[in-house]
Simulated scan of single mutants.
Amino acid sequence: MNRVVHPIEQESFRRLRARLDTSHFPPLTRAVVERVIHSAADLEYASDLVMDEGDLVRAHAALHSGAPVVVDVEMVAAGITRRETVCRLKDAGSGPGLTRSAHAVRLAYEQVGPGALWVIGCAPTALEELLTLDASPALVIGLPVGFVGAAESKEALRASGLPAVSNVSEKGGSAVAAAALNALLYHPLSSSEETS
Rank of each mutant, 00 (worst) to 15 (best):
L63N: 02
G66V: 10
Q111E: 15
V70R: 10
A138K: 09
G121M: 13
I120V: 12
V148Q: 13
D134S: 11
V119M: 09
T85A: 00
E74I: 10
G54L: 14
L63R: 10
D72I: 03
I80S: 04
G149A: 10
L139T: 03
H103V: 00
L117I: 15
A78K: 04
C87R: 00
Y109V: 02
A77N: 05
A135P: 10
G66H: 09
V105K: 04
E84H: 05
A108R: 02
E84V: 06
V148N: 05
P114L: 05
P137F: 12
Y109P: 08
V105G: 01
W118G: 01
L133W: 13
E128S: 13
E84L: 05
A62C: 14
A62R: 15
V119L: 11
T125M: 09
H60Q: 07
A135Q: 03
S101H: 14
D134N: 15
R100A: 03
H103A: 01
G113R: 00
G79D: 04
R83Y: 07
V57D: 08
S136P: 01
R100C: 04
A78C: 07
E110W: 07
V69I: 06
L63K: 12
L133T: 07
D55W: 15
V71Y: 07
M75F: 13
D72R: 01
A104C: 10
V148M: 10
